[in-house]
Structures are given as structure tokens and as C-alpha cells.
Design a protein around this nucleic acid. Sequence first.
DNA 1: CGGACTATTGAGACTCCTCAACTAACGTGG
DNA 2: CCACGTTAGTTGAGGAGTCTCAATAGTCCG
Lengths: 230, 230
Amino acid sequence: VNSDLPVVRALPLAGVGLVRQLLTDAQRRKLAAIATRVELRPRAIVYREGDPADSIFINGGGLVISFKELPSGRRRVAGFRFQADIFGLADQGRYVNSTRALTAVTLYEIPIDAMAEVLKQDAELEFQFLCKVVHEMRQAQRQILILARRDAKGRIAMFVDMLRNARPSDDPAAVDLPMNRSDIADFIDLAPESVSRACARLRQDGIMAFERRAARILDHERFDALVAAG
Amino acid sequence: VNSDLPVVRALPLAGVGLVRQLLTDAQRRKLAAIATRVELRPRAIVYREGDPADSIFINGGGLVISFKELPSGRRRVAGFRFQADIFGLADQGRYVNSTRALTAVTLYEIPIDAMAEVLKQDAELEFQFLCKVVHEMRQAQRQILILARRDAKGRIAMFVDMLRNARPSDDPAAVDLPMNRSDIADFIDLAPESVSRACARLRQDGIMAFERRAARILDHERFDALVAAG
DNA sequence: CGGACTATTGAGACTCCTCAACTAACGTGG
DNA sequence: CCACGTTAGTTGAGGAGTCTCAATAGTCCG
């Protein structure tokens, strides 16, 4: 029914910064010609679930959150869109999720019709786009693996590890957490209180430290063991 | 970090049978020329997680299960591949999941190199492929919504509803369940015992009936309410 | 500086998991 | 064709973990 993607050993499926890194100048110009640059302030809504899906978006800097309001009143966070991420999944011509800026954000908005036109004319560009989608697919699978964890500590650890891999930094022990606890909670499907408690226990165990908007891995060995324990 | 796909209102993103329905004769011939037909018996392994990802596969008939063995000894079922589904997701040149035939299966195996070559030469075909991937992506999101449910009954109902939508049948109340309880359990992340109990309660409530390899929806109103309650 | 939101901590209830026993169904070989 | 062994499925009792509700401390922003 789902997932398990098609693709392709020989391909340059670089995870991060694909749009920025793998496109030729000509391709970048082609996209720039049909894209509109949009600046958004924190908390601004990009689009709402159910809106007509006229455009796709490329994050040019900042952090965007993608989520879904459930009938129960709960909120399901589908993921976080960092620089160079593409978002705007549609189904039946309507956006599947809502998206909102968490920080100040620069977006490139590309009308879907123009995008489809360009893709049909440029197989190479379309191929890069396909790679991007496949990469998103792998992220979704990773999220599913996180949700499969029973233990709250394990979910936190896998979440941090996911961010670490998605956004490698100079210091391999330091991980930015630019979103708040509730956003994390709704992403890994825990109550905010459970996130707090799990972080507290990881701190007591000497495995990690948590600060305002960041985490630090203190004991890499036990951290990696916890991540792999799934 | 994940999901939220790019794509495209104007596109014919028909969910089922895309490969069969949306390709031109010329495109089908092109694929047939590079594909190998493979017949598998029930329980046969298609490939194992970690194997070199040399090919992608199109299910030509029968049921395939995609799964991952976790370090804890548990098993995570990524999904079920029905006729016309494409599978064979690779990361770093290795398959991400293992796949196994649940029934007798016909597969079309396409070497990745040949596939990439064909895709680069035929933007239209590549576009269909992209649509297929996007469809898989939506399935993954649906699975995540199922996993977000707290109640076992709700997960079962959503799972059945997913199968119903994926494989529409003549009788809208009847749903085939060609996989066994353990496979279902590992897909919706419950213990097999919990699946049994949830089904028993759904039966007691008069909402559904369960037979050997099928389910029947008795009270559509309450069933739909349960599915939507997420 | 004040107010609202975020984060943490505590106590009790609920649900599912684990372990175990038992029944039913299947498939294989005599 | 039947008997037996193996696997799949159901049901029960107890325990572990998170969720909910509530109260408190901390933080950010106007």
C-alpha cells in the first residue's frame, strides 16, 4: 500500500541542499524565472489544509512546520521544512497539510502549472525533482520508525538523531532544536509532559543535556545504542 | 524534515493501476523491453534489507509485504504492495526494507541503470513515475495518521478503510484481508493479541464482522465516524 | 514591569504489552 | 483419507508506560 520507493543507486541522491547543490545554472535560472520570492514573519501561515493547491514552495531559509489538525482537536506534525526543502503536497487539488513559519522565512513559490511545464521539458531537472521526492519519502519512513518506538526516551533520541543527520553542524555533539516542545511532542506523538519527562531522564542518565533551543549529546556511545535499539 | 510532497493538481494522480492505466503503448513497450518477468511462490523473499539495490520491481499480480527487522527483534511492516505498485526503495545503493511474497506473485524486475536511462530519455514516462512516487508518499502519510491513533479499534478501522480505498471492490461493505493477523499487527504497530481484542470489540459493538481472510462493515455510519475520529 | 505562553513536575486512571494457556486451522506424510 | 504436528488466532491475568488533569516555575514579549 505504501512507501518503499523506487530508486536508484547510481543517482546523486544527496540528502541536503539538493536544489541548491545539484542544479545547473541554467536549471536554477529556469526555476527562478517562474518562482516568486516571498518573505514571511514568524507564525505566518503559508497555506492551510484544504486550500486549492496552486503552488509548490521551496524553503530559501528559515524553518517551516507542516501539520494537520485532527478532528479530535489534537495536532499531527508531519515534519519540519528546512532550507532547500520542497513542500506543498497536494491530493485532489488540495493541500494535504497546513504549513506555518516558525521563524522568519524566505520562500520561493512556484505555480504548479508552470512547474509541470518546466518538468516536462527538462527531464534532467525532473530527475532532480524525483530524487528530492524520494528523499522526502525516506524521511517519512524514518518518522514511522520513530513512531514505532515504545519508549519515550528512544523517540527523543531518534528525533534528535534525525535532526542531526538532516542538518549536520560543526560540533557533532550539539544539535539545534529550533522548535518548541509542543511541536516536538506533536511530531513524535507524545504529550508535551512526556517529552519533558523523557528529556529529564536522559539528563539524569547523563546521556544528553537540554538547553533553551538546543540539545547536547554527552555520552555518544549510549546515545547511539539508544537510537539503534529500535 | 520529511514528507509534504510537491505535487501537482493538474496531474492525473490516479491512485491505483497507474502503471497499467496511464502509460501509452509505446511506454509500456519500452518498460517491457528492459523488464524481466519473475514468478514467485508464497513466502519467497524478493530481496533483503541491505542487499545491493540493482533493480526496482513492479507488482504484476499477487501480494507482497515490505518490512524491516528491528534490532529489538520486532518487525516493522512498511506496507503491502498490490498489483501495479512499484517497490524497491534504495538508500546508499542498498535496499531499505526486505520484501516477501505473501501469495503467488508475478513481478517485473527492471535494472536500475536501465530504468534511469529510460527515464532520462522520456520525460513523460518519468513524470508518470514521479506521480507514482508521490502516491506512495501519500500512503506513507496515511500510515503515519494510523499510527497516531491511540485506540486499537480506531487503528483497525483506519487500516480497513485504507485497504478499501486502495482496492475498491464491488461490495463496498466487504474488504479483503489477504494478510494474516501478525502482518496487520506489525503494520499498525500493535501486538497480535491487541488486534484480536480490537476486532472482537468491533464485532461486539456490531460495527464490523471478521472472517478468515476478510472483513465486513456492518454499520457504515459508526464505522465512518470511528475512522474520522482521529 | 506585567501578562501570557512555555516548560516542568506530581498523582491517578487507563490502555496496551507481556506471558501464558487454549482452541482452531492448516499441511504434510503415512 | 486420516492422523498428527505445526502454525495462526483467541482469551485471560498482571504489570509497565503514557495520558490526563492540575499546579508550579520559568521565559519571552509587549
